[in-house]
Design a protein around this nucleic acid. Structure first.
Lengths: 154, 154
DNA sequence: TAACGATAGTTGCACATGCAACTATCTTGC
DNA sequence: GCAAGATAGTTGCATGTGCAACTATCGTTA
């Protein structure tokens, strides 16, 4: 008998993540917002705390610093964020929202809330909480699996 | 008051997916298996049913056909799969596992099972089932959200 | 203070992905 | 049986990602 991967969490997580990304970009487009899911998330993090070093942003968005470099490149071209060299430590770039970035983010937040609401539609509060609790356990489990090579989040 | 996205499913799904990919590749490496998560999944699907057209494989792996083209390119270079033109319809390439592909897949399956087991560790059968049920609902919700542009899965 | 190691960020390379546009082939309808 | 449309697959371009190797700068310490 074959091992049935459909009865594990694995396939669902990937599918939903991908599907949601598509939807988000699609709904953004319908509202004349030109943002990818990744760009949106970074704007959101900058809105929570503006002017962060690239390294910190890489950490909180679970991303390699090189990936963040290029995401910032793209977003700087689109004038959503700007790099400002740190006054005291010249190695550091602080990343700030531009006015345009802030406006686009504010326009996008209710759309994202609506979309998340639709996604979670039909789940009771309890069901939702239980699911998140389970996913947190899963995340914790993954973090406890040792791996030699994983040094990107140091 | 800020809307707290951490209390929605959204951030957890993406994080876990990414973290699991890392772990899988890392554990594969430790066992001298050179596979990415995507390559592994395709091998798995071919093992379930060998000799499928590229279009069908794109569909069942939730992927654009162009993405699949290039994934097959990579995997053909690594001699994991091979393209065989369909005898009756010359537009179609049927994709088959190679001997090497099959061997590597068989070596990888117990490792994947083990990793999924570790990921789901501490979740009771009931909890796991409830979580999967909830995720299925979420997936169904996403599919019911209309979007003009999404024509990739036709 | 000079040297060494740590840290922040970038670049080269490879992989993965999607959309638009393309070629080749097949199917359908007149 | 031929033209028009549908289908399978590829390619160009853009985005996003990670690792290894690199530069520039800072901190520590001998």
């Amino acid at each position: 008998m074959q091992y049935d991967f459909e009865k594990t969490l694995l396939p669902w997580l990937g599918r939903i993540t991908k599907e949601f990304s598509f939807l988000a970009v699609s709904v953004f487009e319908n509202n004349q917002i030109d943002l990818t899911r990744h760009q949106w998330l970074l704007l959101k993090k900058l809105n929570d705390k503006d002017g962060q070093p690239q390294n910190d942003l890489a950490f909180i968005t679970d991303r390699d610093k090189t990936s963040l470099t290029r995401l910032i490149n793209t977003m700087e071209r689109k004038e959503l964020v700007k790099r400002v060299p740190d006054a005291t430590d010249r190695r550091i770039n602080l990343v700030y929202l531009t006015q345009k970035g802030r406006e686009i983010l504010e326009k996008s937040i209710p759309i994202m809330k609506e979309l998340i609401g639709q996604m979670q539609n039909g789940l009771s509060t309890e069901e939702l909480e239980n699911t998140i609790t389970a996913l947190k356990k899963v995340k914790a489990n993954l973090e406890n699996i040792p791996q030699e090579k994983n040094n990107r989040l140091k």
